[in-house]
Nucleic acid binder design. Structure first.
Length: 450
DNA sequence: TCTGGGGTCCTAGGACCC
DNA sequence: TCTGGGGTCCTAGGACCC
């Protein structure tokens, strides 16, 4: 079966007997992404159960199919799965975001090459992207999806599932079916014709639809609406009243095949950038907290510069360790404050100083804290700074310094260069006991071929 | 005596996503 | 003992303005 882009595109022209669809989208989703990354460099783990833990080794955030079959649930705390993990000899890894980031970039670049243009790929998360497809028939869409899957796997070693449809929500539904029955679908599913859509949606429960979370799923099921097909057939007025207004109407429209969630412009920037983390163990001295805040600020500043932005507002928060364990974990008493700068900046040193000063406003001696974070908002394009002739020269110099630091940090993929305020003791640093090596980005940890 | 009909901006909170 | 770290969008309500 010849399934190259060229032959598919030629067929689309020739096969005028078939209906040609325009505006089709594919969602390409890496299978158990973090686990796949870990396995890539440890062939012995093939077909073995693998899990990857969140920061601080807190929760399970990725599990291989084998781990799922062992009965390990997604997003549960590590300690709760420990027994199953030991019984089944599951391989456990701490998160290694450097490795995942690099492999993610390779997957996305591959998709951009397949699509033929940067703007035809919308990176949705570290392991998912939407791809706009050329006009084609239903049959060709399936061949194209297979081609995407095979090419990504061949070029990056990462296996993906592909769902194709006229709307993002239906594409996600197709992808859900492809993943659910990997051997039957070859990790590819297409929901293009009305018949394909009906059969698929009748088989999917509402809670598995993109945009229907736990709250709405419970509500729908209580109302007797259990399948995606039933939801699709509800009226706009009903959706508006019952599913959170316009958002709910969009979901129903999308299920009917009417595009209501547009492809995002990849050049559009974020409105806010944050960097927050739990401490490895609770901390009660102000210096440690300030060190942590300084470190998070430099991380956030780096993200800021990567998207060519500057920030005018800095907010920080710290979370005291709760003595009362009955308090809901997610809604602890967060203390926060912010400051607005005279002018927007992306220079780490200009952001760290006010951020560290803010800590003094919140800190109460004697208390223990378990988490802190920095948020940068009021973002503006960086060009407004670069192009300003009236800024003192020192500002441009610091911008230059920042570029250099980013480049060094990026190429070495570690924080070799740091600001003194980030400290060197780091007893607040998170636990990462089971982190794998950074095979693709560090010479000394490179994978050895024997 | 009596209390319009807009508009904007901001914040908090809820719902969702990975 | 032990519970991630980001994000987005939408709505309601209050303050303020004319």
């Amino acid at each position: 079966m010849a399934s190259t882009v060229e032959s598919i595109q030629q067929q689309a022209v020739v096969a005028d007997a078939d209906l040609v669809y325009t505006g089709l989208k594919a969602i390409v989703d890496c299978n158990s992404f973090y686990c796949s990354c870990e396995r890539l460099f440890k062939p012995a783990l093939k077909n073995k159960p693998v899990v990857v833990l969140s920061n601080n080794d807190g929760c399970i955030v990725s599990r291989s199919d084998e781990a799922t079959q062992c009965g390990i649930q997604m997003a549960i705390p590590y300690f709760m799965a420990r027994q199953i993990i030991e019984t089944h000899d599951v391989a456990v890894f701490s998160s290694n975001y450097t490795l995942y980031g690099d492999l993610s970039w390779r997957v996305m670049e591959t998709l951009r090459m397949i699509a033929g243009a940067r703007e035809k790929v919308e990176v949705y998360s570290v392991d998912e992207a939407f791809v706009m497809l050329p006009a084609m028939t239903a049959l060709q869409a399936e061949a194209y999806a297979l081609y995407i899957r095979q090419t990504v796997e061949q070029w990056t070693g990462i296996s993906v599932s592909v769902g194709v449809a006229a709307t993002k929500t239906l594409a996600k539904a197709a992808n859900y079916l492809a993943k659910k029955n990997k051997s039957g679908t070859r990790c590819v599913a297409v929901l293009v014709t009305p018949e394909q859509q009906r059969i698929a949606l009748q088989s999917i429960r509402v809670n598995n639809i993109w945009g229907v979370g736990r709250a709405y799923a419970n509500k729908l099921i209580n109302m007797g609406i259990t399948s995606a097909w039933e939801l699709r057939n509800m009226s706009d007025q009903w959706a508006h009243a019952q599913l959170g207004g316009v958002t709910g109407v969009r979901v129903v429209h999308e299920l009917r095949g009417e595009p209501s969630i547009e492809m995002k412009d990849p050049l559009k920037t974020k409105k806010m950038i944050a960097s927050t983390r739990m401490f490895g163990s609770p901390v009660n001295d102000i210096l440690s907290i300030q060190e942590a805040i300084a470190t998070y600020t430099s991380l956030a500043a780096r993200k800021l510069r990567r998207q060519y932005c500057a920030a005018r507002t800095i907010s920080i928060f710290i979370v005291p360790k709760e003595e009362d364990h009955s308090v809901d974990f997610h809604h602890g008493p967060i203390k926060s404050t912010y400051t607005t700068l005279a002018s927007a900046t992306s220079a780490t040193n200009e952001l760290i100083k006010p951020a560290v000063e803010l800590v003094e406003r919140l800190y109460e001696p004697g208390r223990f804290y378990k988490k802190a974070g920095v948020m940068l908002s009021e973002l503006v394009p960086d060009t407004s700074i670069q192009g300003n002739l009236f800024e003192p020269e020192s500002k441009n110099k610091s911008r230059f310094l920042m570029d250099m630091m980013d480049n060094i940090n990026f190429s070495m993929r570690s924080d070799i260069l740091k600001f003194a305020a980030s400290g060197t003791h780091r007893n607040w640093k998170m636990r990462q006991e089971k982190r794998s090596l950074r095979h693709t980005t560090r010479w000394e940890e490179m994978f050895e071929v024997r």
